[in-house]
Design a protein around this nucleic acid. Structure first.
Lengths: 106, 106
DNA sequence: CTATATACTTCGCGTTACGATGTATAACGT
DNA sequence: ACGTTATACATCGTAACGCGAAGTATATAG
């Protein structure tokens, strides 16, 4: 899919991935893969951005000698998802504009 | 609306605005305003980009002492709109992922 | 013993939306 | 007569963002 189209969807998508239970980077990528593929560099950048914006909190966990950072969504993060749902109405209106047919040819 | 969400929509939106009949910059902004507001600097950048990509052709017209550039969509431009319709299916799938409810709380 | 999977990090690049600013004419209000 | 708004397009600099490339390090599978 077009890279530009993914923008704006990615942030909310990551929040949605941890909406119901905390998760960590590598797992998030796998969970989102069927819907949206994103590279590791992209995800970890997004996670840092969302943390800076208080959309999620981080918890370090030692797992089989490797570091795992578990991310949990905050109230603000949940609010961001709700905002997206509002924006979606506008997106639909734009979609209708793009796919509308010329009345003269109907 | 979130700026990022507009990306990827803008290009196709401009193409859609001239899909049925040629138009010029200032008019396009007015036509799109109910759906999507964009600044002049943004639009003219997009129009140049689309022209470079052979998505549209330009025709200079003298109108009341002012220059008007009429833009007409090409076959490639129409193809781009069709591509978007394909991408839309993926967008919907992402939307469903974002707005899905936790099964345990249903 | 080598390759793959797991897990997170950093750097640099290219694309892009936009505000600010500029140029120039016509129409409208008072 | 004069100022403001509308018309119409152009350029520049900035900041945000996605991603490929490369790095570090351990565990598991073939």
């Amino acid at each position: 899919m077009d890279i530009q189209l993914k923008r704006g969807l990615l942030d909310v998508c990551v929040l949605a991935a941890i909406k119901n239970e905390e998760s960590y980077g590598y797992q998030i990528i796998k969970d989102m893969k069927p819907y949206l593929e994103l590279s590791e560099s992209t995800l970890y950048t997004i996670l840092k951005r969302l943390e800076a914006a208080d959309m999620l909190t981080v918890r370090n966990v030692e797992h089989k000698g490797r570091l795992r950072k578990y991310y949990r969504i905050t109230q603000q993060g949940l609010g961001r998802i709700e905002e997206f749902k509002e924006d979606w109405k506008e997106i639909l209106s734009i979609y209708n504009f793009i796919t509308r047919e010329d009345a003269r040819h109907e």
